[in-house]
Design a protein around this nucleic acid. Sequence first.
DNA 1: ATGTAC
Length: 474
Amino acid sequence: MKHILNGNELIERGYAPGKTLGLALSLIEKGFEEFNKEELITLLLEVKAKPEQFIDHEILEKLATAIIEEAAAPVDETIALSAQATAYTVYGGDQIEEGARKQMNIAMRLPVSVAGALMPDAHQGYGLPIGGVLATRNAIIPYGVGVDIGCRMALSVFDISESHFHENEAQFKRELIAHTKFGAGHGFHGQYKADHEVLERAEFNLTPMIKNLHDKAYSQLGSSGGGNHFVEWGIIEFEKDDGALNIPKGKYLALLTHSGSRGFGATVAGHYTRLAKELCKLPQEAVNLAYLDMNSEAGQEYWLAMNLAGDYASACHEVIHKKLTKAIGAEVLARVENHHNFAWKEVWNGEEVIVHRKGATPAGKGVMGIIPGSMTAPGFLVRGKGETAAINSASHGAGRLMSRTKAIQNISRDQMRAILKEHKVTLIGAGLDEAPMAYKDINLVMDAQKELVDVVARFSPKIVRMADDGSRED
DNA sequence: ATGTAC
């Protein structure tokens, strides 16, 4: 090397480390033989101070251009992640895929993260894993709630015996077909549209975007959508009297529904995720965890819209249950419901936090919830034990064993028919991606969360309706 | 999860 000038000397004299420093060091090798070290430093500091005077310089033009560009570039607003992830508890660890753990590790490095937990049905999602619970300080993460805001379960227990149900299965199947609606984009039209007071809520006027969704929300009220959503008749068994629900031990007909906030919630989720990504710049590995400050206008807007979507999802279940209860002429003995894609303000370890449950069932002490299995595996009515390490949560189901594509490739129609026959389950709709074999063993998942919930009753699906195979439904 | 890309 011709010159004895090194990078550290330039940094000491006020050159910022990075692209321009490297450029300066390489360019001085292309000439300046007559310059001594001090003269070189003076020259380079001059370029840095007044780059515009050097933009026509034969050698230093590139350096001057880079300095001007750097000065014009916006300040890097990226929020740094903590080097160390805050510790969190994993339930059913040996059944949880690596991708879900990696995502949770990143979430636990957010500056707003207070506590987290992975439920035994956890698997990889966008941002926060499905089956992930995250408590934050004064921040709400749209992708920590999930795309289907207010996705939830609802159960009605009827005063109808198992034998009465079996003697009239054809009628129950008929009513299930008559009063439910499945498929992406689908809803009710004209006189078939349902009504509910949620449609009168003032929050529908919160923003023009939300106002524009009112018609769609009206039309889709009481519909179920697609994917893993279902409406099913089944038999629920209480092995002992339940005082809280006032249900004597025994078997009853029950209706179990799984669906969310349809197109309304999906559009709200998409809008505020995009907004959060604009307002909250995070490193590449964490972009889908962009959060909104709860005190900001956007944060407050999302909070109201999310709660509206949650109430709308609840209303959809209520409409389905009312229609079917009326159709079969039954009396409802008990009703249980819960969100499993939502965020709540809760106190955890003495601090008010925002608890995000993305595919997780609230399981505070004494809180009832529903954890479905699959179309042939049992679902469970549970009572939370209020486990602090799990942030008062439990799994939201069995969790997937195979991705949708893998299930379609690996499971045959015959296998599907055989397992339905074996469990005496009648199925309307559904593709192979929802086959029972695509899911983990719910019994193993329940075993892994004995510290989180007690089982109150066991639900066995009998007549299940889901959306037809994806692609062509029109 | 959702109509088809704000």
